[in-house]
Amino acid sequence: MKKLLLSLVLIGGLLALAYQIRPVRQTVVAIVNTPNYINEAGKTIANRVSMPDGFEHIKVDSNSFQFYIRHQNLKPFGSKVINYDGEPYFYQLGHVGVLDVDVPSNGLQQCADALIRLRSEYLWNTNQKDKIGFEFTSGDYCSWKTYAEGYRPKINGNDVRFLKTAQANHSKANFYNYLNLIYTYSGTMSLNNELETVSSIEDLQIGDMLIVGGFPGHVVMIADIAESDENDRLFLLIQGNTPAQSIHLLKNLENPSISPWYKLAINSEIYVPGFTFANSKFVRFK
Rank of each mutant, 00 (worst) to 15 (best):
H170N: 14
L115R: 12
L15P: 15
P243A: 00
L6H: 14
A46D: 06
A112P: 08
F162T: 04
N127L: 09
P23K: 08
E254A: 06
Y271F: 13
T242L: 14
V60S: 03
P35I: 03
Y151D: 03
K154C: 07
A41C: 12
V220S: 07
S190N: 08
V272P: 10
N63Q: 10
F285S: 00
H218R: 05
N267F: 08
L253Y: 05
F162I: 09
A112Q: 09
S257E: 13
Q128D: 04
V283A: 03
L195W: 05
K172C: 02
F277C: 00
I206Q: 05
K281N: 04
M221Y: 07
Y185A: 01
Y183W: 13
F55C: 04
T188W: 10
F134I: 00
S143K: 08
Q245S: 04
D61G: 02
T165W: 06
V103R: 02
L74P: 12
N174Q: 10
S259N: 05
I69N: 01
D203C: 06
V28S: 07
V198W: 05
I69Y: 06
V9A: 13
T126C: 06
Y122A: 02
W261S: 04
A265R: 15
N47E: 15
I82T: 06
K164S: 03
D85W: 04
G86F: 00
N39P: 04
G12V: 05
S186P: 04
Y37I: 01
Y147V: 00
G78S: 09
V9Q: 12
E202N: 14
S280G: 06
G274K: 10
I21H: 13
I258M: 07
T137S: 13
T44L: 08
Q20A: 10
A168H: 11
N241E: 12
F215P: 15
T242N: 15
L181N: 02
E135V: 00
D61R: 06
T242F: 15
N127D: 13
Y84G: 01
L181C: 00
Q167T: 09
S171T: 11
K251H: 09
F175E: 03
Y19L: 15
I38Q: 12
S280L: 09
F65L: 08
L236K: 10
E254S: 11
D232Q: 15
A114S: 15
N267R: 15
A30E: 11
P23C: 02
A148M: 02
K281I: 07
S62C: 03
K80T: 03
V160C: 03
Y271M: 11
D203Y: 11
T137E: 10
T126K: 14
P243I: 01
